[in-house]
Design a protein around this nucleic acid. Structure first.
Lengths: 167, 167
DNA sequence: TATTGTTATACTCTATAACTATA
DNA sequence: TATAGTTATAGAGTATAACAATA
């Protein structure tokens, strides 16, 4: 018996899965399966969605939360430095802070020593909101901790190394 | 001598770094430092940027590349199944494929057995382009491999577990 | 009734460039 | 000249909902 003729895929990439498993089978990720970058993307996407869902009720998005957290930890920080910490351009920071200020969570005061920059602090309402958000974020990250298990430190170190070395 | 009075941060979160290290110091990530989700976000962002920069010359974006890769590995797949594999809604797939089709990289034929769906395949030009893109992607991922080292399999397994379990 | 794909629409996130004010 | 911040603008990427065609 002769197998039906099929188009051959270029050997340089990989043979189509259909040749090996039959057309009706589950689709496959193929080569992508071995790509760190691909899995990194999917994992971040899944984590983000889970976080956003939990946070939806509190108008919490990762960017807002991270900004508030950093202002809390670095009272008096300016916008450019904040942007550097979360790897975003200053033009991205402006509307983010405008939103937080409009909601009364953040105050921007003119810096005493530099007429160009603003000094950022959380208002008492901002601190209170941050406490709630942090509780949510901790729940989220506790779930990630459970998934990662006892290799958390190493896992984070690898992620940091990606940030530093991928440039 | 009396230390200057400072606003106390709520004990429930953490003390401002400025209290511990002085206002002039480098800003800190504080609590975020221990959050897997935060580092996941930064790492994916850095990886994405590096990939996009390398790819810019070839009009390669992660989404386009992943779609072509999957069509290559699963010739005859339809749009909905493709969307499932990369975790995107079908309405997101439509314009993506229209772009690839307009460039002559992908063909959509009516499915023989189902009048609703399209059968996706790469054109010869698409296969050729994919080969180039794959070379780029491999370089990118080789860099990630170097960074991650001999724990690659475990690292990918953890990322996959996040996707599966975070829900 | 359920599913495939398209369209209309809208929203979030982001950056570049040009600008003002200050250093 | 360089830096902090704003604004105008534009572009990727994404989803929801309503729809037509088909199963």
């Amino acid at each position: 018996m002769e197998r039906p003729a099929r188009r051959r895929a270029p050997a340089a990439i990989s043979r189509p899965i259909a040749e090996r498993r039959g057309d009706a089978d589950e689709p496959t990720l193929g080569v992508l399966e071995g790509f760190i970058g691909f899995h990194l993307r999917l994992a971040q996407d899944a984590s983000f969605r889970s976080f956003a869902q939990r946070a939806g009720r509190h108008d919490l998005r990762p960017g807002r939360f991270a900004a508030m957290m950093i202002i809390h930890d670095n009272p008096g920080i300016n916008q450019t430095a904040l942007g550097r910490l979360i790897a975003r351009d200053k033009s991205t920071i402006t509307p983010l802070l405008q939103g937080l200020e409009r909601q009364g969570l953040v105050v921007r005061r003119a810096a005493a020593n530099d007429g160009r920059s603003f000094v950022l602090t959380l208002t008492p309402a901002g601190e209170a909101t941050l406490r709630e958000l942090l509780a949510q974020a901790r729940e989220h990250d506790r779930k990630l901790d459970e998934i990662i298990g006892d290799r958390k430190d190493e896992f984070i170190r690898l992620l940091q190394r990606i940030v530093q070395d991928i440039g």
